[in-house]
């Protein structure tokens, strides 16, 4: 299994958000440049939203990775639901204020005014839709006081339009929407990812027909695409070990793509 042609590609598509694995796609790259530009502006809040799997978290991680070299940036990728904990963690991470007891908003703002940074510190909040309205109000007050600058990501779903909520409508100065990947973008994403790790043979196996199937199954969702490709290459690795004659090294078999989709739950069979 270790020497399998498909074992390395399989590892590439493990669904882990790592800024080093960031793949530059034209549209996403453009969005990222916009985001970076917005961060430099004297804005209080920046909203990054889109459907699940459009790469919001990856962009946020990439932004964190890039900005942390130059200024104070703190990222909360797992939401801190409790209000006291939230302020306490922020005070500790940004201002170095260590206190086991809960701190009030007033205390926090006093700390912020006491510490003078050349650039306003940036807080990146992933999955902001999970925060309560009260906490969001506190976040708004902190950003209004220019103590911190927030970049938050939101899931936009068909069921609930979170952006329509009042605290987002009135306070957000910049919002960037991320779209699902088109088949071409998905092809670039998958092939770039493979080529980046020198998996040339496997990258050459992926043709337009395969991409169409993958795109149809994943609906341009990068996370689903990662899961599907992981399952697909696992499946290929199995066939390579047990029935190598069944593998066509010129292209991916649509049957195997669909089997992988069944395994990942993209097809309910």
């Amino acid at each position: 299994m270790e020497h399998s042609l498909f074992s390395k590609p399989k590892e590439l598509f493990i669904d882990v958000v790592n800024p080093r694995d960031y793949i530059q796609i034209d549209s996403v790259s453009h969005m990222y440049q916009n985001l970076k530009a917005s961060v430099q502006k004297p804005l209080k809040m920046i909203l990054l939203y889109g459907r699940p799997g459009t790469g919001k978290s990856m962009l946020l991680h990439k932004l964190h990775h890039d900005l942390s070299k130059h200024q104070k940036v703190f990222m909360i990728d797992i939401p801190i639901i409790d209000e006291n904990d939230f302020l306490r963690v922020l005070a500790q991470k940004i201002y170095g204020y260590v206190n086991r007891e809960a701190i009030t908003l007033t205390t926090f703002l006093e700390l912020a005014s006491a510490v003078n940074y050349p650039q306003t510190p940036i807080v990146l909040l992933d999955e902001a839709q999970l925060y309560s309205t009260a906490l969001m109000e506190k976040i708004r007050l902190i950003s209004d006081a220019r103590a911190l600058k927030f970049v938050i990501t939101l899931h936009k779903t068909d069921d609930e339009d979170i952006i329509a909520k009042e605290h987002f409508q009135t306070r957000i100065w910049e919002s960037i929407e991320l779209q699902n990947a088109s088949p071409e973008e998905l092809k670039i994403y998958i092939q770039k990812k493979l080529l980046k790790s020198n998996c040339f043979d496997v990258a050459n196996m992926i043709n337009d027909k395969n991409i169409k199937i993958i795109s149809r199954l994943t609906k341009g969702n990068y996370r689903d695409a990662n899961k599907l490709m992981f399952s697909l290459f696992s499946l290929y690795a199995w066939f390579e070990e047990h029935h190598p004659s069944k593998i066509n090294y010129n292209s991916l078999k649509p049957k195997y793509i669909e089997m992988a989709a069944i395994h990942t739950g993209l097809i309910h069979a």
Binding site: S231, S234, L235, W238, F239, H242, K255, E258, M259, I262, H263, I267, A269
Partner: peptide, 18 residues
């Protein structure tokens, strides 16, 4: 762990359904 025979059966079922 992939169960390929089971997956193949499910795939066949899916194709017939589709």
């Amino acid at each position: 762990m992939l169960n390929i025979p089971s997956l193949e059966r499910r795939w066949l079922k899916y194709k017939i359904k589709s």
